[in-house]
Each structure stands twice: as structure tokens, then as C-alpha cells.
Write a protein that binds this DNA or RNA. Structure first.
Length: 366
DNA sequence: AAGCCGGGGAC
DNA sequence: GTCCCAGGCTT
């Protein structure tokens, strides 16, 4: 698909966008922030995350780590704990790594050139443009989900936004439209407009200042835009967690493998191809036997399945609680014996946290 | 280019 | 249920 550059249409867009923004902007803690560290922090937190969900985390991080040195000095487990519940945990790992890089290699001075900002771990095209424009007034247009939606509708672009060609097209168009005399304000305006007016479902077309020149509105294609080419597929995984109780303690383990929830904690785990149908399934399991062949144990209870939806996976987790005798010592060196009252100091996936919150487990009878 | 990485809210 | 959110990294 080709796109024809129309100077008047572009000018109309930019002018009306800025006019709209003058009376509709949403006040948020990071708006107008010039401290690049805080701009960066807010942008990482807001990647693929709604403002309402990210806001408390931003406040918490800002309070705990007021400057990049504070974040750089923090233990990784502490940073992961601070991030617990927000999802996409590689953001936290990259944030921490970049903070250490800035503190140790750059003398604590946040980079002030687009390419240097873009080179930071966890900073892609969008985040680099956001930091460059908000903190340093550099002329780089942001392209996020809001921008794809607003531009695809206003210009009637049916090119998919999730392909290499589509991304390139929208990036070029966004850069053409940028008001270089006030890049920060312009970028803020287009994202606020997408989030608050040109919304995914039922946008406010009747009182939209862009409406006279909006191709999607004129052609009645609002609901079809933006176009995405890929459809999401989700696979199921069945997790059988073994809760080894030993007096006041339980055994937990850190997830170090290259899989979901890396660097979070959970429990010894047997993954199965389906939901075990018999009570003895896990007890008969080969791995399980290996773990427990040298000790006495007692099965206390088995939870009903807990479900958690991830973007590409559905996790069905069952928790098998057992009591082992005081002499039990696992062969796995990665297991960590922890008193129950200290569990709150570790970061766990949502489904494990949900299990903790159940005062009385919904028991399943086989 | 395609797949993977969370959690929550709106519908 | 499906879609989307102030995306980025790995293969």
C-alpha cells in the first residue's frame, strides 16, 4: 500500500491535535518532568501497561530509588520484589542493568543523545523517542499503540501495524507530522488523544476536531482500524507445585531457566501434559519419587486448579501440600529452605500469590 | 519475520 | 470469551 503525502491534511492534523490537547490533557506525575531518570523510569513502567496500573509502581520506585544511584545499588531480588505483580519482568532486569551501567560507566550522567538513550537495555524506538523528546526536547516522534490507532484512522491506512513494512510506514509518517518546535508537547498530545479520545472501542467521533479529514470516519472504517495481521494463539501448561512443609519452613526455588517469570520464585515443579486425573498421579511421578525416595512424607491436601492467563500461555496450577520429616534434605542445591513468615520477602508469580491469599484452599476430592 | 514475555481492564 | 495497553528482546 502506498501513502500519499498531503501537506494540508498533515497541517490540519497537527494544529487540531495541539488545540485539542490544550483543553484535554490529563495531569499525571511524570507530565512535564525533565529529570531524564524519572522520565525513563516512568516510560519503562508504562510499556504495554495502562497508566492506572503503572502509576502506583512509579510512585513506589520514585520514593525508594530517588536517583539512578539508588536503583543501581539495590539488590536484584529487591528490585524484582518492587516490580512484583506488574508483569513483563525482563523490564525490571533491564532497568536495573541499565541503572548500574549509567551509575558505573557513565558517572551517573543520563545520556542526552537519542542514539545513546536508544542503546540502553530495555529502551527501544518508542522509549528512546519519549525520553529524548520529554527530557531533552529532541525532535523524535513516538510511535506506540495510540499512534498506530490515531494515524491509521485519520489517514485510512490499512497496512498492518505489526509488520516490518507497516512499522516503517507509520514511523515515517509520525516523524513527518511531528511539530519540531515542541516535540515533547506534540508527543504528549498524540498519546493523550489516542488514550482519551480516539480510543480502541467507541471513540468520540461526534465531537472530534479531526473528523472533517478523518478517512476512517468518512469511509465508516473506524472499527476496522488499525489492522493487525497476526492472531494470538495460547497454549496450555499444567504446573504441579509441590509444597514441601517442614515444621515452620517450606522449600522454594528461583526460576533461572529461560522461561516465563525468570528471576521470580516459585516451588519445586512437575509440569505435565494434562491435568492429572488421579490423586496418586504426582506421587507416582518419576521426578517426584526421586525427590522423596529417602524420606517419610505425608500428603496433606491438594488444591483445586488455579488458572492464570498470560499472553501466549494459559497456566493451570495445582498445589500439592505435603509434610516431610525434619531430617529431609533435598539433593537439589537450588532449593531454598525458607520460614513461612519470610515468604513475603520474595517475588512470586501472580498464580502463586493467589494461592497464598487463599486462607482455605478450595480442595478437590478425587 | 516470528515468537516470546504479564497482568489487568473494557467490552 | 477477545482485545488492548505510553514495547522490547531473542531466535
Amino acid at each position: 500500500m502506498t501513502f500519499h503525502f498531503d501537506k494540508d491534511k498533515n497541517h490540519f492534523f497537527t494544529q487540531n491535535l495541539l488545540r485539542w490537547h490544550a483543553s484535554h490533557h490529563r495531569p499525571l506525575p511524570w507530565k512535564g518532568e525533565k529529570n531524564p531518570y524519572l522520565v525513563w523510569l516512568s516510560e519503562i513502567i508504562l510499556q504495554q501497561t495502562r497508566v492506572e496500573q503503572g502509576l502506583p509502581y512509579f510512585e513506589k520506585f520514585k520514593e525508594k530509588y530517588p536517583a539512578v544511584h539508588d536503583l543501581a545499588r539495590a539488590p536484584e531480588d529487591e528490585v524484582m520484589k518492587m516490580w512484583e505483580g506488574l508483569g513483563y519482568y525482563s523490564r525490571a532486569r533491564n532497568l536495573h542493568a541499565a541503572a548500574k551501567f549509567i551509575a558505573n560507566e557513565l558517572g551517573g550522567i543520563f545520556p542526552n543523545k537519542y542514539e545513546d538513550i536508544r542503546a540502553l537495555k530495555g529502551v527501544g524506538d518508542y522509549t528512546a523517542a519519549a525520553i529524548a523528546s520529554f527530557a531533552f526536547d529532541l525532535p523524535h516522534a513516538v510511535v506506540d499503540g495510540n499512534v498506530y490507532r490515531v494515524l491509521s484512522r485519520y489517514f485510512g491506512i490499512e497496512e498492518p501495524v505489526d509488520t516490518t513494512a507497516g512499522k516503517k510506514l507509520f514511523a515515517k509518517l509520525a516523524q513527518e507530522l511531528l511539530d519540531e518546535t515542541q516535540p515533547g508537547k506534540y508527543n504528549q498530545a498524540i498519546m493523550d488523544f489516542g488514550a482519551g479520545h480516539c480510543t480502541p472501542a467507541s471513540p468520540s467521533c461526534p465531537d472530534c476536531p479531526m473528523q472533517p479529514h478523518c478517512e476512517a470516519f468518512k469511509q465508516n472504517k473506524i472499527a476496522q482500524l488499525p489492522v493487525k495481521s497476526k492472531k494470538l494463539e495460547r497454549r496450555q501448561r499444567f504446573f504441579n507445585y509441590l509444597i514441601f512443609n517442614q515444621q515452620e519452613s517450606v522449600f522454594i526455588k528461583k526460576r533461572t531457566e529461560k522461561d516465563i517469570w525468570r528471576n521470580l520464585y516459585d516451588f519445586p515443579l512437575i509440569e505435565t501434559e494434562s491435568l492429572p486425573e488421579e490423586r496418586n498421579f504426582v506421587l507416582k511421578n518419576k521426578i517426584w519419587k526421586l525427590w522423596l525416595e529417602k524420606t517419610e512424607y505425608r500428603l496433606l491436601r491438594v488444591s483445586a486448579p488455579f488458572k492464570q492467563e498470560l499472553t501466549h500461555q494459559q497456566i493451570i496450577a495445582r498445589f500439592w501440600e505435603i509434610e516431610v520429616d525434619g531430617a529431609f534434605q533435598p539433593d537439589e542445591t537450588s532449593w531454598l529452605k525458607t520460614e513461612r513468615r519470610n515468604l513475603k520477602n520474595f517475588a512470586f508469580p501472580k498464580v502463586v500469590d493467589l494461592y497464598f491469599k487463599q486462607k482455605f484452599l478450595p480442595l478437590e476430592l478425587f
